[in-house]
Structures are given as C-alpha cells and as structure tokens.
C-alpha cells in the first residue's frame, strides 16, 4: 500500500516496483483478451505508459489494481479492434478437445476452447463484465458501442458458451 501512495505522489520507482510485482497478472489478463504474444507485450507496454501519466489521478490506493486492469483492458481492446478483420492463421486457433476424461487440465482446455469458440466481440464483453467486473456503461465506453449492443453481446456470448460447453457457467 505504501508503494501505491508513493506512486500516487509521483514516485516512479515505487510505480515501477508495483508494476513489476503485477507483471504476471498483467500478462495473464492480457492473454485472456489477446492471443498474439507481440500484442500482449505491446498492450502491457502502453499500459505502463498510461499508468505513468495517470497515476496521480488515482483517488484511492485500494483501487490501484482495478484501475490498472481497466487501463490494460482498454489497451487490449484497442489491439483486438485493430486486428479484428485480419486473417487468422489456422495454426493459431486453439485445439478443441475431441474426447477425453474428467481431468481438470482437460476441463481447462474445454474452457479455453469454449471461450475461444465464442464470437470475439462476445468473448471480450463476457470477460470484461463477468470476469473483470466492468459495468455495461464502462464496456460501452471502452468499445465505443452502445450499451444495448453490449447487452446483446453478453446474452449471445452466454448462450454460445452454454451451447458449446453444454453447461451453464453463469449459474452460481
């Protein structure tokens, strides 16, 4: 917490320490939204630059991680948006498990497959809302889409995931 307060007062070494502490988290989060290694590193790099510029505006130190995550998601979405019409090399698509047992690793693969099977825009919206806890309005701001479009993407994404995985992953 001390580092956050120092960083909020412009202490760059403290911010650097915080960012390095969160390097693993930043990378893993970026991979949820992006599949390309270079894009992930670029998004993290720009997140750092945005964090340097905006750290003084952070009002409460306990929101540091949420604030940093939102910056990262915005950077990821920018890259996703830029590449959404690029052709995908078939080799970069994840393997869908064909048959298997009840291993947890396979379940994880299933999830990966299920998520990747989703329409990209729906997947981004699902992750932002249901995983990272962004409100529909916040997602609309990031994606520059209307809140109603986001609501539709969430509905379609949930249905797609249910169809694909054969289970409801949104039931508590």
């Amino acid at each position: 917490m001390d580092d956050i307060i120092l960083a909020m007062h412009g202490d760059l070494p403290a911010l650097e320490h915080l960012l390095l502490e969160n390097a693993d988290y930043l990378e893993r989060t970026a991979y949820l939204y992006l599949s390309n290694d270079t894009d992930v590193q670029d998004a993290i790099s720009d997140t750092v630059l945005q964090a340097i510029r905006g750290i003084k505006k952070l009002q409460k130190p306990q929101f540091f991680k949420t604030w940093l995550t939102k910056i990262l998601i915005r950077q990821c979405y920018r890259r996703y948006s830029k590449r959404r019409h690029d052709p995908i090399l078939i080799e970069e698509l994840p393997v869908v498990p064909v048959a298997g047992n009840e291993l947890s690793s396979e379940q994880r693969l299933d999830l990966l497959a299920g998520l990747r099977q989703l329409n990209d825009a729906n997947r981004q919206a699902l992750l932002m809302h249901y995983f990272n806890g962004l409100s529909i309005l916040e997602i609309a701001q990031i994606t520059k889409l209307s809140p109603n479009t986001i609501k539709s993407q969430l509905l379609r994404g949930k249905q797609q995931l249910r169809d694909w995985l054969g289970d409801d992953y949104f039931a508590n």
């Binding site: 390097a23 990378e27 893993r28 991979y31 590193q41 993290i44």
Partner: peptide, 21 residues
Amino acid sequence: DLQKAQPVHPDQTKQTILSAM
C-alpha cells in the same frame, strides 16, 4: 483456471515494463 494454465513469459514482461518505464 484458464489464467493459471496460460503459459507466460515473466522475464519478457518485466523487460517490457522496464523498457516502458
């Protein structure tokens, strides 16, 4: 679970952060 299963490159990411800083 998916996040944990994702292979990452911590050294590279730290280098990216330092380069940006």
